[in-house]
Amino acid sequence: MARWGMVIDLDRCTACQACVVACQVENNIPPASARTAERGRAIAWIRLVPFGKGEGGEHPSLRLIPVPCMHCEHPPCTKVCPVHATQVGDDGLVGQVYARCIGCRYCTTACPYTVRQFNWDRPAFPEPMEAGLSPDVSVRPRGVVEKCSFCHHRLQNAKDAARAAGRPIREGDYLPACVESCPPGAMAFGDFDDPRSTVSRLAESHRAFKLLEELGTHPKVIYLSKGEWGGES
């Protein structure tokens, strides 16, 4: 069984946010408005989190880190769900079953990366935007929690295609929308259980680090960066 994960090279990332929009389009996220954005209710499954450094110091810098769901191996969110709406699936992906979710939001509180989001509003796609919806992903109703799925539907499609071709699934068959779109090629995706995969090789880099590793969540998103963020610190 594969262990899907992502590596994001912050030295290559230009903070263009193509990943953010690619994800929103792929996953049928409704367009926000100024009002919802102002209230912090606009939904994005991956977003860029700023880390400023050296305010007033000699070498100030700004780091912008793309944060999707970490698909932790020990996710704090699944443990608190009272209705088993979120679980670790066979492929190691942390899934969310919208039909089971009761919207209690325990999981949004439990997630240390705050990547889980609650649907405060009914989804609305003003005519004719509905025509652009993808049939692969259900539109979430109001009152449920959603989050990055690593484009799980793409994994299903890739598995089907591989099965039809009578071969095992290969590297590159399955990429989430954000990884596919990334202009500078800062994101890599693959199977951490395969020692020859690109992500496995990158994860061995001295520049590699994980977010909030000390919590014991074992995130499957690994970052690469030189200097103060990476292994050199």
Binding site: C16, V21, M129, G132, A177, E180, C182
Partner: peptide, 30 residues
């Protein structure tokens, strides 16, 4: 339903910026 880069195209090389990704919203704009 989705716009991505054309992998053979020498400008995009299969990649796309956020504006290109959002371009369906200009097609289906109310």
């Amino acid at each position: 339903v989705k716009v991505d880069g054309n992998p053979r195209h020498p400008v995009s090389g299969g990649r796309l910026c956020p504006k290109g990704q959002a371009s369906l919203q200009s097609l289906y704009h109310p």
